[in-house]
């Protein structure tokens, strides 16, 4: 209810959320309206053909004669899935890590935050590459690899917030009622971090989608014939002169989505950090 109130109070936030929902809906149901499948090569048709309504290639075809409309939407499914799962992974690790460290404090806190410092000093890109090389290219591993290196900010913020929460009365009350540390963290600390987590989710999601696209640039992305916005934009960037549509459509979707997510994150922060919420 709180969420709905925030939403209704901010027209721009509402507009961004609705627009994002529209993108999501298009990505999910759009492919059903096209006569083509995601990985279908039209051997007889034109390859790298510009957009046209006549052949039902609304976004044109790619350099292997596959329909770009369908591929853009399929790529969107994958990019958003990678984004969501990786964000969840990184938030889960970050919140658990930060809340535990912040709540227990003392030596455990120091050790745990020291580990975060060490990981901060690790060049992230190198880390992801090695993980990808080590564990192959399974989709699941991409999620985990990205999520596993992206939780550090969340951990720091969650710890800071927990330190503040720890001193509040309801935590003391919970301790008096005989709950153990883990229960307190789970029932009282983590739920109170929810606002923070929502903001961070909206901030992390676009980052993760960009990371996936960077991996595609390095050739470490998803497996053909599956695709993602990153992979499509990368292919399109290579053909930007000869077949600009192969860059424009996927890049348009990618950019719009990232823009919307960024707007949502910004408005949410403004709304949630306002005193009284």
């Amino acid at each position: 209810m709180n969420g709905v109130r925030i939403l209704l109070a901010d027209r721009r936030l509402l507009a961004a959320v609705l627009a994002l929902a529209a993108v999501l809906a298009l990505v999910l149901v759009g492919p059903w309206f096209s006569p083509y499948a995601c990985d279908e090569i039209d051997f007889a048709g034109d390859w790298s053909a510009p957009p046209s309504a006549s052949g039902a290639h609304w976004f044109g075809t790619d350099s292997l004669g596959r329909d770009l409309f369908v591929r853009t939407l399929c790529g969107g499914r994958l990019s958003l899935l990678v984004g969501l799962v990786s964000t969840l992974v990184s938030l889960a690790i970050g919140v658990a890590w930060g809340a535990l460290a912040g709540y227990r404090g003392g030596r455990l806190d120091q050790t745990m935050m020291r580990a975060v410092d060490v990981l901060y000093a690790l060049p992230f890109m190198f880390f992801v590459i090695v993980l990808m090389v080590l564990f192959g290219r399974h989709l699941l591993l991409i999620f985990i690899a990205i999520g596993a290196v992206n939780w550090l900010d969340m951990a720091r913020v969650a710890r800071g917030q927990t330190l503040a929460l720890r001193r509040r009365e309801f935590v003391a009350a919970a301790r008096l009622s005989g709950l153990d540390d883990l229960q307190i963290v789970r029932r009282h600390i983590v739920p109170n971090l929810a606002g923070l987590v929502v903001i961070y989710a909206a901030l992390t999601l676009p980052q993760v989608i960009l990371i996936e696209s960077f991996l595609s640039f390095l050739g470490l992305g998803v497996q053909e014939p599956a695709t993602s916005w990153g992979a499509l934009v990368n292919d399109g960037a290579r053909e930007m002169e000869s077949a600009p549509w192969s860059l424009l459509f996927p890049a348009g979707f990618l950019t719009t989505t990232l823009l919307l997510l960024n707007v949502i994150a910004e408005r949410l922060r403004a709304a949630l950090e306002r005193p009284g919420c």
């Binding site: 090569i41 990808m132 090389v133 192959g136 290219r137 050739g219 497996q223 053909e224």
Partner: peptide
């Protein structure tokens, strides 16, 4: 991608593409 599609279309072969570093 194209070879796998040709195998699939003509013979029905289910080829999985695996790209490796």
């Amino acid at each position: 991608t194209v070879v796998a599609a040709m195998w699939k279309q003509t013979l029905g072969v289910e080829a999985t593409l695996i790209h490796e570093e």
